[in-house]
């Protein structure tokens, strides 16, 4: 199945993945061949099958509404690439 460079770019943008032009072409080819392989699923008659999102037959797994201690913020903030005080810092979000 052939897919276009534009499609690869659209997908890469959705996934926030920067791709160089050469990579776009490279992935276009590979994606095409993998999708070609995947196409074999069209042969299966699934008209009466319900999609199986969970392999286990378990239901109603809850947690009680009881407060548990939060984590020490410093433990988390030490991993931050950029921070200010107790905030995580990112380039300005354009509203």
């Amino acid at each position: 199945m052939a897919i276009s460079k534009e499609e690869v770019k659209y997908i890469a943008n959705l996934a926030r993945l920067g791709l160089a032009e050469a990579e776009v072409e490279h992935f276009r080819e590979q994606l095409g061949s993998i999708l070609g392989y995947i196409d074999k699923l069209k042969k299966v008659d699934v008209s009466k099958i319900i999609p199986m999102a969970h392999v286990l037959d378990i239901k109603n797994v809850y947690r009680q509404d009881t407060v548990l201690p939060s984590i020490d913020p410093q433990k988390v903030l030490q991993n931050a690439p950029s921070r200010e005080g107790q905030f995580f810092k990112v380039p300005k979000v354009i509203e």
Binding site: I11, A15, F27, I34, V44, V46, I49, M52, A53
Partner: peptide, 26 residues
Amino acid sequence: IILGTYVLSSGYYDAYYSRALKVRAL
């Protein structure tokens, strides 16, 4: 990431993801 994003993207969900969940059941 590209393949996974593609199969979930608008217009392809039924053809890929939903179908895959059905064959998974089989």
